[in-house]
């Protein structure tokens, strides 16, 4: 008796009686496995998540409540003949953020923040944000996947259940305490740090540090504020997470108005040359 073969037999989904056809497995997580399938009625490819056990389709309900271009949409849900819940989502052809060589990581990060902020505005905390759960679509769009352990934060899970991914999981989440949107802010800070090639500029490092502060009250109170700080950094403006000295301020302003400064210098140089050499 081959245990692995039997495990495969136990996990293999049987889509008979549904409108879906299995194409190939895409991956597996703690809550369920994702398969590439085909919706035989509409003739389109879909990603189908099949729960390992007869768990309620919490994720499908969460996703259905979050209609946003940065959140993978759910099309349908149902049960397999063995009682397991499945649901079909948009199949995103692209790369995971972790594999993606991003020429503008901060712009991508802002798109992710926008989607997370939207979820928070609907009362949903993702709780498992990490680069593996962010897909970059073929048009450069960022989509947040795997809402398997997401919860409405007004209805937290009972304490003692620590779910998430080490390295991206907020300390209070790792301790199994109830979490709020600031747990996602912690994960976003960890993602931001990962996205940036070293050496990380001081102001960005300060943003990461504030987002990943040990105590939730020391972090940004909302994702929108984290995003605003990153946007300010991109725009060459001062960020709230970092108090700069006079030199740093001058350097930032010079960098921000680099072209204007160069043109003015060119003008002054030309005037000087004309004054000293051409007139004489």
């Amino acid at each position: 008796m081959n245990v692995e073969r039997l495990r495969e037999a136990l996990r293999a989904p049987d889509f008979s009686g549904t409108k879906y056809r299995l194409i190939e497995p895409l991956g597996s997580g703690g809550m369920g496995a994702v398969y590439l399938g085909e919706d035989t009625e509409l003739g389109r490819r879909v990603a189908i998540k099949v729960m390992h056990l007869d768990d309620p389709a919490q994720e499908a309900r969460v996703l259905a409540s979050l209609e946003h271009p940065g959140i993978v949409p759910v099309h349908d849900s149902g049960r397999l003949p063995d009682g397991r819940v499945f649901y079909a989502m948009k199949y995103v052809e692209g790369r995971r953020l972790v594999e993606h060589r991003d020429p503008a990581p901060l712009r991508t990060f802002l798109k992710v923040c926008e989607a997370v902020a939207f979820a928070h505005s609907r009362g949903v905390v993702h709780r498992d944000l990490k680069p593996e759960n962010i897909m970059i679509g073929s048009f450069g769009e960022a989509l947040i996947m795997d809402w398997g352990i997401a919860r409405w934060h007004e209805h937290p899970e009972e304490p003692g259940v620590a779910l998430g991914t080490p390295g991206y999981m907020a300390p209070e989440q790792a301790r199994g305490e109830p979490v709020d949107p600031r747990a996602d802010i912690y994960a976003l800070g960890a993602i931001l740090r990962l996205l940036l090639p070293p050496p990380i500029p001081r102001r960005l490092e300060a943003i990461c540090r504030r987002a990943t502060a040990e105590a939730p009250e020391d972090r940004y109170p909302a994702v929108t504020q984290l995003a605003a700080d990153v946007a300010r950094y991109l725009d060459g403006q001062p960020v709230s997470a970092y108090r700069e000295n006079l030199w740093e301020r001058a350097g930032r302003l010079a960098a921000r108005h680099r072209v204007a400064l160069l043109l003015v210098l060119a003008y002054l140089l030309m005037r000087t040359v004309l004054f000293f050499f051409v007139r004489r």
Binding site: R7, L10, R11, G29, G30, A33, H52, L53
Partner: peptide, 13 residues
């Protein structure tokens, strides 16, 4: 039960 089921199915968290 749920933890053991995950172990048996080979899908531990």
């Amino acid at each position: 039960f749920r933890e053991e089921a995950r172990y048996v199915l080979g899908v531990q968290k």
